[in-house]
């Protein structure tokens, strides 16, 4: 009969109208992201051996690092910059990192007002506390 579908639809919406709501109240209640979420990068400079693998694997030339040799002819990280505005957050760099110095973190509120602020100085950022990512990153 014509109208059956209409009444069924009305019944569904009425059921949902009285049902619970699924909204996440975001700024008040922060979402609990799974440990593998790729939402920003974190670096532990003491672990970094400046091998440059991350620079090479990055598909978008996001990472830019310089190093200098210390007394023992060992390379020491000097600067480590990421142009996060170009970053795809694909995670290839963290997978290639042999020492686990570069990690993905779950800090997801990355919006900034100016484009220049997207040029992250990872060493400076590491001084601030970053929530570290899960075991594999």
């Amino acid at each position: 009969m014509f109208g059956n579908g209409l009444i069924k639809g009305l019944r569904i919406t009425l059921k949902r109208f009285y049902g619970p709501n699924l909204t996440e109240y975001y700024p008040e209640v922060k979402p609990n992201l799974p440990p593998r979420t790729r939402s920003s990068m974190a670096l532990e400079p003491e672990k970094c051996i400046s091998c440059g693998l991350c620079v090479n694997i990055c598909p978008n030339q996001v990472i830019n690092l310089t190093s200098e040799k210390d007394g023992n002819n060992k390379r020491v990280l000097k600067t480590y910059h990421m142009n996060i505005g170009r970053c795809l957050l694909c995670g290839l760099c963290t997978q290639s990192c042999p020492t686990g110095a570069l990690r993905l973190s779950q800090e997801f509120e990355n919006a900034v007002y100016h484009r220049e602020e997207l040029l992250w100085d990872m060493i400076a950022r590491s001084k601030r506390s970053n929530k570290p990512s899960g075991e594999e990153g």
Partner: peptide, 8 residues
């Protein structure tokens, strides 16, 4: 509209 679609 939001209550019908289970939002707040």
């Amino acid at each position: 509209a939001h209550w019908v679609s289970q939002r707040s």
